[in-house]
Design a protein around this nucleic acid. Structure first.
Lengths: 225, 225
DNA sequence: CCCGGTTTGTGCGATAATGCACAAAGGCTG
DNA sequence: CAGCCTTTGTGCATTATCGCACAAACCGGG
């Protein structure tokens, strides 16, 4: 996240400020609640949520307290109500349009992953600088040349971009995206992008994750006292 | 990470204990250092590293102090030396073998991503429960039935597994992997796996990341005081 | 309508992570 | 070799995050 550190609510004091950690968990709560809701579970408790997330139940209650007093002592939380509140607070009680830059395998995987659509995200454009890829069809989208991005944004109102290009080009592409009005970037390239502070950024580095895993296994072996 | 919370070094006190946050950054330092090293940069400073990671330089020095006194006042750190120390400490100064479960698009994307190989990870097996996929060739690997996992592990010594299966099957598959001796799991399914505490776990939920991004953009709009 | 069993909301202390600021150490110039 | 500049290592204050524990609220049974 660029500089959106504090997640400060406007001084107007509308809603309580959320800690970065809480926001991360909100998505996870939502995921589980939606599953449970489909299973017909009308009410959930903080300990149930804590259980599946592997955290303390008090933490859950504190997080959820930020949504207003939705919990009822002795009962728990109404699943549907909680889902609605979470989606509203997260800003996913609407549809978000996103474009994808880079038509490699990762992009294809993302386009085919239907979890996004369920959460209200839709991909409205796919772009690649490689002329050989332009014109190709992927999951209902036709690969376009990068100079068509502005036009697509204007037409669809897309605010988010997924960056799945090589590290070398990432910064340059990101700059171009900002120039044409993109508001948030999900970056898969293994570089720390420099963006204006009003542009949001979330980075996912898959190699880092695997490395973290290796480290923990490595440690577990040597730790074996 | 299952319970490997403290990242506690064995009481033997070999190396200083690393904070979870430091370890996360270690991978990032390494990534940039390797790039710079290839570019011929022999010496780096904490402020350079802080710059590219977007963090304070004091933080960088504290992190790196955990590797021993590699820095020289007035000079900085020798790139190559730092790389060696980081790789050693992270446990990536060796080759790690990993298997992939689930031969969907995400798996294909991962197999084709060469960043892993550069970091010393190699994929030695690909498995899918769908009989129609068994026998297919993907990036030099032949999709096998899940009951062949044990055999592959025995043959290759693979310790890591990448889980790229639907959420419904994830826990069951994970249990099976643990049963045949896998030591660490990188989980892409949107569920919190329950694993024995001696098994390491790193989870990546792509939908959550996109949701985080949406939230920050959402907030930026409403925050605009 | 009272009582035991649940579950929320939260004040408070504990723990972790971050950032500041400065002394000590190395190198370059003249 | 003296002076100045750079950069490390780290003690300390600040901030963020977590978990415990308990009062208050709610339910169902008898």
């Amino acid at each position: 996240m660029s500089k959106n550190e504090g997640t400060s609510s406007g001084v107007t004091g509308g809603e309580p400020k959320l800690s970065r950690a809480s926001v991360q968990r909100f998505s996870l709560y939502l995921r589980h609640l939606e599953r449970w809701n489909q299973d017909g579970l009308a009410v959930v408790s903080s300990s149930q949520l804590g259980e599946v997330l592997g955290i303390n139940d008090a933490q859950v209650r504190k997080d959820l307290a930020n949504l207003g007093n939705l919990g009822q002592p002795g009962i728990g939380y109404h699943t549907q109500e909680l889902i609605t509140a979470l989606r509203h607070r997260l800003g996913v009680d609407r549809t978000w349009s996103a474009i994808v830059i880079g038509a490699g395998n990762l992009a294809r995987a993302l386009l085919r992953y239907h979890g996004f659509a369920q959460q209200g995200f839709q991909f409205v454009g796919l772009f690649d600088a490689d002329p050989k890829k332009v014109g190709e069809e992927v999951e209902g989208l036709t690969v376009q040349a990068p100079d068509k991005v502005a036009e697509t944004i204007a037409r669809t109102g897309a605010e988010l971009a997924v960056l799945a290009v090589p590290a070398e080009n990432a910064q340059q592409v990101a700059d171009a995206l900002v120039a044409v009005g993109i508001k948030g970037i999900l970056n898969f390239a293994p570089v720390m992008l420099k963006l204006p502070s009003n542009i949001s950024l979330v980075a996912v580095d898959l190699a880092v994750q695997l490395e973290q895993l290796a480290f923990h296994v490595h440690l577990a072996k040597h730790d074996a006292i």
